[in-house]
Design a protein around this nucleic acid. Structure first.
Length: 561
RNA sequence: GUCCCAGUAGCUCAGCGGAUAGAGCAACGGCCUUCUAAGCCGUGGGCCGGGGGUUCGAAUCCCUCCUGGGACGCCA
């Protein structure tokens, strides 16, 4: 069974195409080709259940007034065997379709039958997509930017999966390069300090207190033995130990945040396997590299970027960019048709050059989609919480989850589009009041579960599909709720197309609102057995939809609160 | 200086080519002998930053200017 709205929409579109063809054959419309029209749901329900702009688009090519075109189309329209009861021409030339109100009732048995899969669509057709997100330096703990990226990335991946894509979640471990050098120097300084030797943490190093703890652990394992080693050996040992620890901590923090990756990809391995060198060789053979001032540059500007970028420094060490090119080559070699990277706003200059590199590799640059995520600002008590990564003064993901809870954190991070700066109000996220949208939504789910529990306590049973007559649901609040449930698969499509979890976040809030409205006006468990069954089917479908939508956001749907 | 993002109700933001621009919060007034009041109902509230253009139609697309944030490294 296909999705309800889509089926009707497709049916109407077909009828419209036939109508235009008929009118053209009869000589009533003189047009060359069919414009790209839409069948959409009007905002105002007085304008029908569906509407099309077809007549307005045909007005110019047909050299006729839009309403006149609409008349011709409607006269040629065949709607037998559809839900359409009435067609009207309105406004500047819209054709509005009014359906038999019963069309929405189909969703109740559908949602119940599909259960956890209600809302699942198949626009992806099994296409392989990779979502790479967070990819934080394994030199410290996760900060708010990482946290937002985590929530966004996981939710986008979940939505794409629900929309029929074959999704791989991937974390790129930056375990090579300059910051690892700095990391080593910082660890070394802490090591010496702990053992009574004065050595400052370098200016460019990592100043967070967490490194002191890490090194304490190292000392517990290895003692002061490395004081006598060469600096290189000492740093290597410290880095190896600390990387393993930090990575484990990051993994744990993400798992506690409800996020599990399919692949953890090491940058180090790209270097060790020779992939970086090979990729550069390839680009060089193609003539996309050149030397300047002792360094090797990639001609990014030839591929639409604003400037070229260094791939090998004059000291002979490849840059992060070089490794990233090799990484993306590897991604496409693994067969991903779409590669989605989620980066912080501070990397945005890098996006055009990376796409350029993808093009230079002979891949379609549009297959790489870079989502640039704007900054997060934390507020507490109405004041902005100041943070500095350099000094290590920042709130970590663990601390955030501990303070506001996982569900609130996940929800707040996806409520805004990635494009927008996010003001995260810690007090609001913690509030157990109606101001807090997370509780509002979860409460709707818990309320339904409470009704179902109540039913059970009274010895009642959920109705079998044959025992439900949805036609009994005629109240405004009931119809609005059903209509919203019907919309869910469409929302999934929009969210997947736009890589926009905020649409789902919004949807859950609207659906919860309609449930609360209904709940306050009508009782579900009523003596009228038939009405009771219909309403049970309604709230159960709401429960399923709410739970499925929340799952896409990584937010739990509690049964009691 | 160049590039990116944003500018819509008092505040935080949706809407991104369609009909009378929406939601939450805040403000004000109501609703619990009821399946959870962490809830509901009602009331106000807007030159969609300014100016041009494209279009039958613009908050939405184009140009330009203004304001705020960010990026412009042989860091990642």
């Amino acid at each position: 069974m296909s999705e309800i709205v889509e089926e009707i929409r497709a049916g109407l579109a077909r009828s419209l195409v036939d109508a235009v063809a008929g009118a053209r054959a009869a000589g009533a419309l003189k047009i060359e080709e069919l414009p790209d029209f839409v069948v959409e749901t009007p905002r105002e329900k007085e304008n029908g259940d569906f509407a099309t702009n077809l007549a307005m688009l045909l007005a110019r090519p047909a050299r006729m007034a839009p309403r006149r075109v609409a008349e011709i189309i409607t006269r040629n329209l065949s709607l037998t065997g559809t839900w359409v009861e009435r067609v009207e021409i309105a406004g500047p030339g819209f054709i509005n379709f009014y359906l038999d109100p019963a069309w929405v009732y189909q969703v109740l048995p559908l949602a119940e039958a599909r259960d956890g899969n209600y809302g699942r669509v198949n626009i992806g057709r099994g296409e392989k997509v990779q979502v790479e997100f967070v990819s934080a330096n394994p030199t410290g703990l996760l900060h708010m930017g990482n946290a937002r990226g985590a929530a966004l990335g996981d939710s986008i991946a979940a939505i794409l999966g629900f929309a029929g894509y074959d999704v791989t979640r991937e974390f790129y471990i930056n375990d090579a390069g300059n910051q690892i050098e700095n990391f080593g120097l910082s660890l070394e300084a802490r090591y010496q300090q702990l053992l009574g030797i004065d050595m400052p943490v370098p200016e460019e190093g990592y100043h967070g207190d967490d490194l002191i703890e890490t090194v304490k652990g190292f000392v517990t394992c290895h003692g002061d033995g490395y004081l006598k080693s060469s600096a290189g050996e000492r740093r290597a040992a410290l880095v190896k130990y600390a990387l393993a620890e930090k990575l484990a901590a990051i993994r744990q923090a993400l798992a506690d945040f409800g996020i599990n990756y399919d692949v953890w990809f090491s940058e180090r391995e790209l270097h060790d396997s020779g992939a970086v060198t090979k990729t550069l060789q390839y680009l060089n053979e193609k003539g996309y590299l050149y030397e300047k001032e002792g360094a090797l540059w990639f001609k990014a500007a030839d591929f639409g970027a604003d400037k070229d970028e260094v791939v090998i420094r004059s000291n002979g060490i490849p840059t992060y960019f070089a490794a990233d090119i090799a990484y993306h080559k590897n991604k496409f070699e693994r067969g991903f048709k779409r590669v989605i990277d989620i980066w912080g706003a501070d990397h945005h200059g890098h996006a055009a050059r990376m796409k350029g590199a993808v093009a230079a590799l002979g891949c379609d640059p549009d297959a790489l989609e870079v989502i640039i995520m704007q900054l997060v600002r934390l507020y507490r008590g109405g004041e902005m919480v100041r943070m500095s990564k350099r000094t290590g003064q920042y709130i970590t993901l663990e601390e955030l989850v501990e303070e506001v809870g996982r569900d609130a954190a996940r929800y707040f991070f996806v409520i805004r589009s990635a494009d927008s700066h996010l003001d995260f109000d810690l007090d609001l996220a913690k509030a157990q009041t109606n101001e807090n949208p997370v509780y509002y939504i979860q409460y709707a789910h818990a309320r339904i579960c409470s009704i179902l529990r109540h039913l059970q306590e009274q010895g009642g049973k959920m109705p079998q599909p044959g025992e439900v007559d949805p036609g009994l649901l005629r109240e405004e609040a009931e119809l609005a709720l059903i209509r919203k449930i019907v919309d869910f698969p469409e929302e999934v499509v929009s969210a997947a197309r736009g890589l926009a979890p905020q649409r789902i976040a919004r949807y859950t809030h609207e659906l919860a609102g309609l449930l609360h409205s209904f709940y306050n006006s009508y009782r579900v468990i009523v003596p009228d057995r038939a009405l009771c069954n219909a309403r049970l089917a309604l709230v159960n479908a709401t429960r399923i939809t709410l739970r499925n939508a929340l799952r896409l956001l990584g937010v739990t749907a509690p049964e009691t609160m």
